[in-house]
Design a protein around this nucleic acid. Structure first.
Length: 109
DNA sequence: TCTTTGACGTACA
DNA sequence: GTGTACGCCAAAG
C-alpha cells in the first residue's frame, strides 16, 4: 500500500483543474513535505504503477518545464495531454506558465 | 548498512 | 544567465 504522502500528493494532483498546471514545490509546500522530490517520486509511482488515474502531466517544475516527460509512455504523452487540454507547450515548457499556474493554496480560501 | 540516484528548489559565485 | 553546492526524503543496488 502506498505511503500517506503518496496518497496526499495524488489527491492534490487530482484537484488540479483541466487546462491548469501546478508545480512540485507548490504541492510540497502545501503538504509540508519539506522536499519537492517527494512529489515527483509520488507521481512517478502513479505513472509507473497501475494507478495511473492521476493527471501527473499537470505537474511541472518551477520553470514550467516538462521535466518528467521522459517517464511517460510514450515520452511525448505528457505534452500531448497538456495540449489536448488547451495548454500550449513549446520547447518542453508550458507557454504562459505564470498565467496557467494553479496553486493548491486556493483551497484554503 | 552504506552509497548512489532522482519528475526539485534555493543559495551563491 | 550559467555553473556549482547543498538540502531535502525515499527507494534501489
Amino acid at each position: 500500500m502506498a505511503a500517506q504522502y503518496i496518497d496526499d500528493v495524488w489527491a492534490v494532483t487530482r484537484l488540479i483543474p483541466p487546462g491548469r498546471v501546478s508545480t512540485y514545490g507548490a504541492i510540497a509546500d502545501f503538504l509540508t513535505l519539506g522536499s519537492a522530490r517527494m512529489v515527483g517520486w509520488a507521481l512517478f509511482q502513479s505513472v509507473s504503477g497501475p494507478d495511473n488515474d492521476v493527471p501527473a502531466h499537470r505537474v511541472v517544475n518551477r520553470r514550467g518545464e516538462l521535466s518528467g516527460r521522459n517517464h511517460f509512455r510514450p515520452p511525448t504523452l505528457m505534452q500531448e495531454r497538456l495540449e489536448a487540454e488547451g495548454v500550449a507547450v513549446r520547447d518542453d515548457a508550458v507557454v504562459d506558465f505564470d498565467r496557467l499556474f494553479w496553486s493548491p493554496t486556493v483551497l484554503l480560501s
